[in-house]
């Protein structure tokens, strides 16, 4: 039998009341335990309503209008689903979505593969592994603004270190290595930076997964004379999979709304090659000031991320329950 949400809430309230020290309960006379519990969570709920739920409802309402924030004196007209239809029929929207999908797919693939590999190596607990773990984590600790700016210099064809290294390896002149200007290379330049910065995060989650596998399972496998390869495929990977999937979920959601790095490195260019959905959204909302239109665009993105994340979580739960 499934529990209803009110039953769960009652239980949570009771649990909170039980944990409330007697001293507090005595001091707040005249209030029931349930009321005290509500008092404690009220600020959080109010904050959530004010900064999440209310703007969301307002954005949904605006998405059906022609409202423009830079024309406060113009009458606001309800235009039904017109904004949604224009967005979904606009070729540029789909180009931005393709750029986003390309970015999300490759960053997740690279970060998962490299992150898991690093976690697997670090988990071997070799000499100095703690030091190397710290070093690997450094990029993740930096501000995206700093990372974006210094990679822009690293990519600089005339003075950038990246161009010199590629030139040294390939023999091409440095001035030919134009990572941010070349239409084919620009999307990869952002993928490289994001992978460099966020692989440690994936590594950390995978490491937690690897360390959660009890040693006795490996010991049993040793007794059964299972090879290292067999142990990896039959024990390590399946047991770490929920953690890997969790890392993929976090990075997927984060990269779907990627803005800062793209804005700093390419600004969406050259042309519109790296114009991911969030850059298009920013341009519509704060450069063209099409508030109603951009609200509709934001809702479409929200529904897409929410829908995909929900499907993914269901798969994740299925994997966990196996």
């Amino acid at each position: 039998m499934t529990e209803t949400s009110s039953t769960l809430l009652d239980r949570a309230t009771e649990a909170a009341a039980r944990r409330t020290p007697d001293g507090i309960a005595k001091r707040v006379r005249g209030l029931s335990d349930r009321m005290v519990a509500w008092l404690f969570i009220a600020p959080t709920i109010l904050l959530l309503l004010a900064i999440n739920i209310f703007p969301l409802i307002w954005a949904i309402q605006l998405s059906f209008t022609n409202y423009r924030a830079n024309r406060p004196n113009e009458p606001i007209k309800n235009i039904g689903l017109s904004n949604y239809s224009r967005i979904l029929n606009d070729a540029d929207t789909w180009i931005a979505m393709q750029a986003t999908a390309h970015f999300v797919f490759w960053t997740i693939v690279l970060q998962t593969v490299i992150g898991f590999t690093l976690a697997y190596l670090i988990d071997r607990k070799f000499r100095g592994h703690a030091f190397w773990t710290t070093i690997i984590l450094v990029p993740m600790m930096l501000s995206p603004a700093v990372v974006g700016n210094f990679w822009r210099f690293l990519y600089e064809p005339q003075i950038g270190l990246f161009a010199y290294i590629v030139s040294f390896v390939t023999g091409l002149p440095t001035t030919d290595i134009q990572m941010l200007s070349n239409v084919s290379l620009a999307p990869w330049s952002i993928i490289i930076v994001d992978t460099w910065m966020w692989t440690p995060y994936v590594m950390l989650i995978c490491l937690a997964g690897l360390r959660s596998i009890p040693d006795y399972i490996y010991e049993a496998a040793e007794v059964d004379r299972a090879s290292n390869w067999r142990q990896f495929w039959s024990i390590t990977l399946p047991m770490a999979l929920p953690f890997i999937m969790l890392a993929v979920l976090f990075r997927g959601i984060e990269n779907f709304k990627m803005f800062d790095m793209v804005n700093l490195l390419t600004g969406g260019g050259p042309g519109s090659t790296t114009e991911v959905a969030s850059i298009t959204l920013k341009r519509e909302a704060f450069e063209k000031w099409r508030t109603g239109y951009s609200s509709a665009f934001a809702i479409i993105l929200f529904v897409a991320v929410f829908g995909l994340a929900n499907i993914y979580v269901k798969v994740l739960n299925r994997v966990k329950s196996r």
């Binding site: 830079n70 050259p270 042309g271």
Partner: peptide, 23 residues
Amino acid sequence: EPSYASLLQASQKRFHDYVVAGQ
């Protein structure tokens, strides 16, 4: 025009797509 920002963003995109990206 009051819509200069939209007009400007359109030209930014069209010109950059052609001049820099070569599309």
